[in-house]
Design a binder for these strands. Structure first.
Length: 310
DNA sequence: CGTAGGTCCTGCTTGC
DNA sequence: TGCAAGCAGGACCTAC
């Protein structure tokens, strides 16, 4: 499942293979892939033609390709000043692949973008269709620190509510701590709330909680500064480590978004390790049902709080 | 308003 | 063996 590290690997691949190139045409093979582009698939394709791709950007699990060149926003559009972008979310199974335009279409090919240089094309392949692409305007970044807010890079309008991710300079540790103290929920639910902290999904949430020795149902309003500091440090460490390993396939022509944690899978401490020994204390890892999914934790290192929140 | 739960989607795994 | 239920889960939507 692509979370922050996997999406960053994709972003770097796109920077290498797609940035600076001009789109000749786009083709939508499955309308659901652009369902959030409200003007529809035809508008999506028409507006991409002739645009040039700028350096790809990312926030949390979203990535976008800023677009320059002709055919930009329609006249009086208020967003036109800050520009437009092709916004992508990979969902559960989405992949952005770069390769020979003549290769056979993938089984779950949803969108194909070809470039006017006749080189490698860009394909959005998505089995479970939780991912999507859309064209959107850019707006000022409300999460940028106030001093630099005016000159901070703009963000796609539909994700203006998505918080900064913990690997960004814009992420405010103290503000995150205060937000947690105001919340009345469990710490894992808060970690998965992209309006509080972005980029963390089910896998890295479990990994970060294990490293920080916190139980997933711990009420957020009882967390101490030291615990939140530990949690953020753990999240940053585990995602940086995953990114470092996922980066091994940069040189591959294909933009690697195999998801499934790639090479990092072998480094997971708790996720998917039900009944296997905790690497710290040897206790069998437990699996709890949580939000219609799974939570993995060590019963000894991460004792359940007396008051639990789900 | 904040929080919690349902929903979308396909393919692999599990159980009868 | 075959079929059906279970499972995977990010983010939006709705309900309380």
């Amino acid at each position: 499942m692509p979370e922050l590290p996997e999406v960053e690997v994709v972003r770097r691949g796109l920077e290498r293979h797609v940035a600076g190139r001009t789109i000749r045409s786009a083709e939508v093979l499955h309308p659901r892939a652009v369902r959030r582009h409200l003007p529809g698939p035809d508008d999506f394709a028409a507006r991409l033609a002739g645009r040039t791709v700028d350096v790809p950007r990312r926030r949390g699990k979203y990535l976008w390709l800023p677009l320059t060149g002709p055919g930009s926003a329609s006249g009086a559009d208020a967003d036109a000043d800050a520009g437009e972008a092709l916004l992508a979310h990979l969902g559960m199974s989405g992949q952005l692949l770069v390769g020979d335009p003549g290769r056979a279409p993938q089984k779950h090919l949803r969108v194909r973008i070809v470039f006017d240089d006749g080189g490698h094309d860009l394909r959005f392949v998505d089995q479970r269709t939780f991912g999507h692409l859309m064209l959107t305007g850019l707006v000022p970044d409300a999460f940028a620190p106030p001093p630099e807010q005016a000159k901070a890079a703009p963000v796609p309008e539909p994700i203006a509510h998505i918080a900064a991710d913990p690997l960004e300079d814009a992420f405010d540790d103290e503000a995150f701590y205060r937000a947690l103290r105001r919340r009345r929920t469990g710490v894992k639910r808060a970690l998965l709330d992209q309006s509080l902290i972005s980029g963390v999904g089910n896998i890295y949430a479990d990994e970060a909680l294990w490293r920080a020795r916190l139980h997933w149902a711990r009420p957020t309003e009882t967390l101490t500064r030291a615990e939140v500091r530990r949690l953020l440090e753990a999240a940053r460490q585990v995602m940086a480590a995953a990114l470092a390993v996922g980066g091994t396939s940069f040189d591959s022509l294909y933009v690697n978004v195999n998801g499934e944690s790639g090479y990092f899978e072998r480094s997971l401490e708790v996720y998917g390790r039900r009944d296997e020994p905790c690497r710290r204390c040897g206790s069998p890892i437990r699996r709890d049902a949580f939000m219609n999914r799974s939570s993995y934790s060590c019963p000894k290192c991460q004792p359940r709080p007396r008051r639990a929140r789900y």
